[in-house]
Design a protein around this nucleic acid. Sequence first.
DNA 1: CTGAAAGCGCTTACAG
DNA 2: CTGAAAGCGCTTACAG
Lengths: 328, 328
Amino acid sequence: MQQIAQAAGVSVTTVSHTLSGKRPVNAETADRIRRIIADLGYVPDVAGQRLKTGRGRIIGLAVPDISHSYFARMARGAAEGAEALDYGLIICSSVNAGPRTEKRYFNMLRTRLIDGLIYSANREVTDGDEFSRVASARPIVLADESLPSIDHLPSVVSDNETGGRLAGEHLAALGHRRAIILAGPAGLQSTTDRVRGFRTVMPNSLVLHGDFETTSGYSLVSDLLANGADFTAIFCGNDYMAWGAILRLAEEGIRVPADVSVIGFDDIDIAPLIAPGLTTVRQDTTQMGRRAAELVIRAIEHRDEPIESQVLPVELVVRGSAGAVSAS
Amino acid sequence: MQQIAQAAGVSVTTVSHTLSGKRPVNAETADRIRRIIADLGYVPDVAGQRLKTGRGRIIGLAVPDISHSYFARMARGAAEGAEALDYGLIICSSVNAGPRTEKRYFNMLRTRLIDGLIYSANREVTDGDEFSRVASARPIVLADESLPSIDHLPSVVSDNETGGRLAGEHLAALGHRRAIILAGPAGLQSTTDRVRGFRTVMPNSLVLHGDFETTSGYSLVSDLLANGADFTAIFCGNDYMAWGAILRLAEEGIRVPADVSVIGFDDIDIAPLIAPGLTTVRQDTTQMGRRAAELVIRAIEHRDEPIESQVLPVELVVRGSAGAVSAS
DNA sequence: CTGAAAGCGCTTACAG
DNA sequence: CTGAAAGCGCTTACAG
């Protein structure tokens, strides 16, 4: 910048202001400066800005595992949202790996490596007190899961209760009366909400908890079968569990949807390919990431204004895996 | 740091050195300083370090789409690799969206937002000259694809040619003589290498190009069928294309592997679930990301030492989708 | 509309 | 083993 100022015969102050536009600069002078900047290929060093302003235009995204498609989509949304506001997005994967990694991400905030954090965990934080303390110093917004134990942190979540209700209503309309819920992990707010929504329609549905993996859908159905459970429909915590359930049912010669209907949650990209086409509740995970990024950046730039949580709409996507209950 | 120095009754110089260990500090003094640091919960602000040293301990990962599982796994590896060396990883998604986003990532290097870049594109860069210019100022390492048009940039890629050969040998051993290659996009080095490897075993295999999506595997098989092509095996550019091919064959009542054998590439997590279990060439995408991160960080910290490219081994994973050619 | 100067929080020769 | 001081590249009151 020194160099530019010298070449243009002005002070660095003026160069800085032509760049930022924070105070009027003579049009001719500004033009000359801009031309020199372009010629020399100058770009301002963020390190200088950061030291002076205290902000580095970087936010973090903490997720359990970035390689899972669910969090990968969230990351994409967050990266896009951040990029649109000229921020960078640092990935903090394996946030649930233990207290040590958890601490590491807090330290990113404390060292000012990042100006704010999007936190998407699928279990409770180890040290709630530290979490609150860090959150009071720099903005944290929760994505995907609200954490009831942490008070009043803004969050961006899907309308999980409505999602559960939509699935229940669809099955009820198809004549189903005995449904099983292959829910996500117990203790998650999203799990609780989806179960509650579903049960407003089908109150006595049995609830089994899995871990969102295909294998858990598979083995929970094995358990069900081994215990002679009697059901005509299954509502799953996500699409992977639904796929596992369908795979296990097929092995047993139980047809989907002729004998048993299956509904998933998420609408992942391969949902249409899971024979016979997975009926599921779509949530917009990319949008969730984008909104969370926007929220946290707004909080960074306007520390005074309160930021309000957002609930994203969900939608039932009807494909082939849920059908009318058979006459038998 | 000023504060710590005052509380400990020493100079900031000494505090800095107890933290960095770059010069000996009296044991007692060091202990006292460390205790005060712990009590006050002090962590050094990276902005200060960055301005002084010119490095911010952040690298970038540029990929076409972070929400694709392939790049998500690479991101996970890169994030882990970076984290192990105390670096942050900034995501630059949609690198192929056009010259504008491409430029944006270069600018991240030029503004020193990032100290180095892992570049994983699935097509040629728009502006090769600028690429080279940027790369000469700050380290760039290519992951997944080497770009022949960019001279002498270090890269981390899989042994694609061996992968192709392994697939070909497996099919040949099973008695196949007429195979189709549903390759990735033309012009990619990985595509060329896999095709070449496969054809060292089965020289006359027809090559069709797709785009790595399930739909392209599906529609290429449609084309094949419509043209009455005669084949007993298909080798695909990745597992998604293989899945699409299997789906299309099933629609036609063509059994896999009884009538046609199918081999994929990657070994994605759902490969075992793609009935009848996908035989595929496994490449370690996570490892690729990790190695690329290590390479670029080494280059950042030792600008003088040359960094050599790496080729990662691949491995044939035999499942159910490839079998002996039928007697008919 | 413009400039001189302070200062953000570190690191690191230089001097002792 | 330790300290005073310069300086990294910006931004922003303050003064004109």
